Simulated assay, not measured.
Amino acid sequence: MTENENGGHNKDLSLEQRDELLEELKARFEKNSHRHNGLEWDQVQAKLDAHPDKLWSLHEMERTGGEPDVVGYDKENDEYIFYDCSAESPKGRRSVCYDREALESRKKNKPENNAMDMAAAMGIELLTEEQYRDLQKLESFDLKTSSWVQTPPDIRERGGAVFCDCRYGRVFLYHNGADSYYGARGFRGSLRV
């Protein structure tokens, strides 16, 4: 993110950043064809070229260790779907509680940030439990870490939040206080382009 004249941030990538990101995304796309059978990179890149704001979000996913990749195509809406595909929960997004309310409720030892605000600032959404389970059908992720997922409102209203991981060949959904945070728990995001 670059600073603009007003001291704020804009979402423009330099030409060099853009080219590096597209090169990285293309290499990952080609190396992991099992994640997106039947899809062609040229069509994905055309979409990215038409939506530079989405390219910025992908850059943020990449910068924080998410290793985003295409995991599907929504024909009805003509959108490619990217998920974070890093083997473990993205390193640059760990040690965060679930949301701002949880962060503000902590009296001491507050984490630096929260998953919901970070995702919103990046222009992405936390995976839902269903999306997380779909991701795990492609290959095994989070064998040593865990990832916050979107929490149903009735659980969140009671102070909880949910996260998932993969152990013993299965995907597990767990609960925790929304204000909890751990060095091995981050979050995975999704982006539609």
Rank of each mutant, 00 (worst) to 15 (best):
Q43D: 13
Q43N: 08
A120G: 04
E129I: 03
M118C: 06
E62T: 14
K110Y: 02
N114K: 06
D78W: 09
C97T: 02
V71Q: 07
K54Q: 14
E101T: 12
D42Y: 15
T64N: 07
F82V: 01
E101Q: 07
D42T: 13
E88V: 06
L48M: 01
D99H: 04
D84G: 09
G123K: 11
P68W: 08
V70Q: 00
K137V: 01
P90N: 09
Q136C: 07
D134Y: 06
M116R: 05
M122R: 09
E88Q: 08
G72D: 10
D78E: 11
L126S: 09
L127W: 01
G65V: 07
E101F: 10
G66H: 03
L135F: 02
D69C: 15
K137N: 08
L135C: 12
T64S: 03
D69M: 10
C97S: 10
P52Q: 03
L138Y: 08
A87L: 13
C97M: 04
D78P: 04
L48P: 00
E60D: 13
Q136T: 06
R63M: 14
L135W: 13
G65H: 11
V44P: 00
P111A: 12
M61F: 06
A121H: 03
T64G: 01
E104K: 04
P52W: 02
N109D: 12
E129W: 09
N109W: 08
